[in-house]
Design a protein around this nucleic acid. Structure first.
Lengths: 233, 233
DNA sequence: AAGCCAACTGACAATTACTGGCAGTTGAAT
DNA sequence: ATTCAACTGCCAGTAATTGTCAGTTGGCTT
């Protein structure tokens, strides 16, 4: 096996986010442990965020991918359009991520002497989408980690309520963002407009994968009703 | 210079889409021509779509990137959100590109044993955006290659007209797509709603970069007027 | 505090991979 | 028919990679 192939394999192995011992990897790739140590050196030198701790093992610090990947021209266009939209329609954290992703890709996908390419897309979503952005990072984080949220909500007709919810999915409707959840108070699925959420904090507990309360169950239920679910009541 | 660095450099050189001779590349990277031939072998074996033609030179078949790239978790989220939106709000060609890009990334960015990950985003744009999709591939292609378009247009108040336009940029407004152009008939900038374009064909000629008729000039003009430009008149 | 674990480091020889040079062959274009 | 430049095979010299060995270091457990 070629060295460069082995380096890619190491990344693939480490990508599960769990702890790995140099000895195990060495065994699996049929090289000596010393070689693995040297490989981790090389990877670190290339900027891959791998932490090695003495007495413990190796672990990936954050998600990574560096596959030999061929993108067609159309895929590049789809990517740029998508990033343009996200840069307009999402919260600042995602906006920054979209911008930095675009920079990274442009760095490698265009000849370095050339001027920044114009991809022929402009995006002008409605301003309303920006209301409620301040809660989006918290919400996305809660969805990722399956953490309950404690929210205060002011519905469109002016009633206030306080809920503990299991955030399942954020939806983008072109103008507004909504959040589909399992609501503990109502013991049912509820969708909230994110711009109507007045306060939003982690409740400090995770939620489990309970059949009947999963995103999949919600989508099936909504499909059955041919609607998009109720606003919070 | 390490071999792997040289391989990346070759990709970077070839990435301008033009023709390159092995001799020139060899000279530039200070290795022998023989080595360059061997490198192209290696690249081809890794799946990079480079064509070599005897007596002609080397050329990239389609855009490519295989950078050592680290994406943060947030960047991955931005990417998935963007692709979800494109998969809903764009024409079938871009939709397919978005889907295939998502597949490629999920293949490498998630542990290979795990089930497909749910990213917590849903996207439901208005159906109107889908009108006029049939012209989008032609239009995107024309923007890319700076080709004039011959269009038939039916404005919102029912008047028909036929124009030769220089397509500069497509804009997404959350519900509809518009196309900003230089219009030869009006000798001025004009924006057209893409869903109101009844026929759309390449005019068979390219347009040049004429100062005063570029996208950049249009954007400056629009900024100055604090509006979004006229609909076609 | 002692012991264990596994990451690390340095040195050296053996092995392997890469490279340049040369002498060809091949396919396409002129 | 000639030219051009991609391609191929071979060989010897060179450079990079590897395994072995003998340590050191920092964190954790007992």
């Amino acid at each position: 096996m070629r060295r460069s192939d082995r380096l890619s394999q190491i990344i693939e192995i480490v990508q599960d986010g769990r702890l790995h011992l140099a000895r195990d990897i060495a065994e699996r790739l049929e090289v000596s442990v010393r070689t693995i140590y040297r490989d981790f050196d090389t990877l670190a030198a290339s900027g891959i965020p791998i932490d090695g701790e003495r007495g413990v093992g190796y672990m990936l610090r954050e998600p990574v991918f560096l596959p030999p990947m061929n993108l067609s021209f159309t895929e590049l266009e789809a990517l740029h359009l998508g990033m343009s939209i996200v840069a307009e329609a999402a919260d600042p954290e995602l906006q920054e991520a979209a911008a930095s992703l675009t920079r990274k890709i442009d760095n490698v996908a265009t000849a370095k002497g050339s001027s920044p390419k114009n991809w022929g897309f402009g995006v002008y979503p409605f301003a309303q989408a920006k209301a409620g952005f301040k809660h989006m990072p918290t919400i996305r984080n809660a969805i990722r980690n399956r953490e309950k949220l404690q929210i205060d909500y002011r519905s469109l007709d002016g009633r206030n309520s306080s809920r503990t919810i299991w955030p399942l999915q954020a939806e983008y409707w072109g103008r507004v963002w909504t959040l589909s959840t399992w609501c503990e108070e109502r013991a049912d699925f509820r969708a909230f407009r994110i711009d109507c959420i007045t306060a939003c904090d982690l409740a400090g507990a995770q939620f489990k994968d309970v059949p009947g309360r999963r995103l999949q169950d919600y989508l099936e239920k909504v499909d059955a009703e041919m609607g998009i679910g109720d606003q919070a009541t």
